[in-house]
Amino acid sequence: MTERPDLLTNPRSDRVAMVKRLSGRSARRRHGQFLVEGPQGVREVVRHAPERVRDLYLTEEAADRHPEILAEARVTVRHVHLATPEVLAAMSGDAQGALAVVRTEPDVALPAGPLRLVAVLPWAADPGNLGTIVRAADAAGADAVVLGPDSTDPHNPKVVRSTAGSLFHLPVVPVEDLVATTARLRVDGLQVLAAAADGEWDVDDLADAALAPVPDVVVPDLRRPTAWLFGNEAHGLRPEERDLADAVVRVPIHGLAESLNVATAATLCLYASARAQRRAPD
C-alpha cells in the first residue's frame, strides 16, 4: 500500500496517550469507551456493532492482510485511521496491527424475547475465564451472559481479547441483584441449574436422560430452557448462590485431575443443554 499523507506517525502524540489510557478501568469508566485489540475482535465489532466504533486504527500491513476489515469499515465506521506499527504498538501491545476504540453500551439488558439458554456468573474474577465463557456461551447459542456485581469488568482488555469477538454477538448483562434476576428468569420459564464439583446430579447422566427420557423418573431436564450458574474460579459458588438453583450439577472427572477450570466446565454444561434443546420436540 502506498504511504498516505494522513498516516499517523507520532507514537508520542496526545491521541496515542489517550487511547493507551483506555487499558485502565478508571479511564474506561470516565470516557465510556474501551479497546478492542487484534484483527479478530476488530473484524467482529466492525461487522456486528459498527455504530459503537469511535475510531479504528490499522497499520498499512494489517490493512493489506485483512482487506475485508478496511472495506467494511470505510462504509460503516466514521473515523478510520492508518498508522505506523510504532503508533499501534504505543497504543497497545496486543493490537497486532488492528485496534478499535469502542463506546460502552450504557444499559445492557436481557433480551425481551423467549430465552432458551443463559450463563450466569455471580462472581467471575479472572478476565481470561470470563472472556472464554462468553465465547463458549456464544458458540453454544446462548441468549445472554449475566454478570453479578462482584464480577470483573467485561471491558477489561484481557476479557475482550478472550471473547474473540463474541462480546459483540450476544448481550453481556451486568446486574446488581442476582436474586431478582434469577426470579425474572424463572418467570420467563427457565429452570436454574448450578454447576459445582459436589453436585447431586451428573451432567452426563442428565444428557443421557434428555436423549432417552424414562417415564416417571424425575431428573433436571436439559431440554428445558435453562440458566446455568457458574461459580468463582477459586471459591466456587457461595451458599446463597447455590440456594438460587433448582438443582446442583457436577461435571464428572474420570481421570486424576483434581478439578476442571471453570471455563471448561461451563463449556461442557452449556453444550449439554444446547444439544438436548436441539433434540427436544417443538
Rank of each mutant, 00 (worst) to 15 (best):
A49T: 12
R135T: 01
P67D: 12
G165W: 01
A274K: 01
P157C: 08
R74G: 03
H254E: 09
R21A: 14
V217W: 10
D198T: 12
A17T: 14
Q191N: 02
G38P: 09
T59W: 08
E86Q: 15
R78W: 06
A71P: 05
P215N: 12
P157E: 03
A62K: 00
T152P: 04
K20W: 15
V248L: 14
P106M: 10
P106V: 09
W123A: 10
P114W: 12
V118I: 12
A139E: 04
R43N: 11
A124P: 00
L147F: 07
P171H: 11
A27Y: 08
R12K: 13
G32W: 10
A280Y: 08
A71Q: 15
G41P: 10
E51T: 12
P11R: 04
R43F: 08
W123S: 10
A209P: 02
V134M: 01
R29W: 08
K20T: 14
S166N: 02
L270Q: 01
A180N: 06
L117D: 04
A140I: 02
D221R: 04
W123M: 08
H66F: 14
P220W: 09
E258Y: 05
P127H: 06
G255Q: 12
A212W: 12
E241D: 13
E68A: 15
L170C: 05
D216S: 13
E240C: 01
L190Q: 03
L270G: 02
I69V: 15
G24A: 11
A95V: 06
D205Y: 02
V19W: 04
A212M: 13
R238L: 15
S273Y: 00
T9F: 09
A207E: 11
K158Q: 15
L270Y: 00
T226P: 01
T2A: 14
L222A: 05
V19F: 06
P85Y: 10
A100S: 07
T264E: 11
A137D: 01
G236Q: 07
V134Q: 00
R184W: 10
N129G: 09
V248G: 07
L110P: 01
N156Q: 11
R78E: 07
A83E: 03
H31S: 14
Q33S: 13
I253V: 13
M18K: 14
Q96V: 06
A266S: 14
R4A: 11
A164R: 13
E51M: 10
T226I: 07
S273R: 00
L167W: 05
V145H: 00
V77P: 00
L190V: 05
D221V: 05
G165Y: 04
H254S: 12
R103L: 06
A183P: 03
